[in-house]
Design a binder for these strands. Structure first.
Lengths: 131, 131
DNA sequence: ATATGTAATGTAATAACATAACATACGAGA
DNA sequence: TCTCGTATGTTATGTTATTACATTACATAT
């Protein structure tokens, strides 16, 4: 598994996020890992940077939080889409190849070189809406 | 024009963003408006909240900044898409009805009630790429 | 004109998120 | 062993956003 390449701190942060099974802010991660010796935000941010680079973790821009990739390591065809429930905080991640393709073509027309796509959907999940 | 409904502070913030013709952080707006009497972040944030609600201003989540809607008041069919140049900072805003439609259908399958869509594309614009 | 209610504004303090700068440790080759 | 790159630790600081409370402005009822 890819985890084997991770350093101690990276691994701890990844495990923390995976167990949480939902988004956490960097400072929430820090608090969770204090008992394991973490002392400063930078320890978390450095690990998150690497994990994000490896696509083991995604950053949710609209809530300044981080979530473990729901596909282990992320190999979508195209950009990831996140559906975030404002009520319970759960995040569903999925690929939408057609969306990516469409955005790319829109953008190419204008000579824009696309490097990173952020798509975040806010709303209410089925369970919460039912209540 | 809709501006007539704005309060003094809201109007000043909107004018500031419109003149800038690009994204500004809340604190950049604050600094720009200090000479006009602004003293505290909250004055800016309150105005931005209202302007965002009216869709005269959009928040760019991936850069914690705000930009005046490039269509005056925003009446896209579907969600707005922002293409942000990481080199020069310019933002192009466009509608992508097909993208919105596709995202909506993806999401409906799972009973997710969509309230807000964020789509931000980071990369390099034609001019910057040419250099 | 005065009282009252409501929206907007002002101000200070602080919370929440993120990075800079520098010191130290530690393992993989020369 | 040396040393070079990578990871880590630590302090301080920078940046973004909100809470809490006081005051002002303005509309309208009395």
């Amino acid at each position: 598994m890819i985890e084997s390449k991770l350093t101690k701190n990276q691994s701890m942060v990844h495990t923390c996020l995976t167990q949480e099974n939902g988004p956490m802010t960097a400072y929430a991660i820090l608090d969770a890992l204090r008992e394991k010796g973490f002392r400063a935000p930078l320890q978390v941010y450095r690990a998150l940077e690497k994990l994000t680079e490896l696509k083991l973790v995604h950053r949710l821009e609209s809530m300044s939080a981080f979530v473990a990739c729901q596909h282990g390591t992320c190999e979508h065809s195209g950009a990831a889409v996140f559906a975030i429930c404002d009520t319970c905080g759960t995040v569903a991640e999925f690929a939408a190849a057609d969306v990516s393709k469409s955005l790319e073509s829109h953008v190419k027309e204008n000579g824009f070189v696309l490097k990173k796509t952020t798509i975040e959907l806010r709303g209410e999940c089925r369970q919460c809406y039912a209540v």
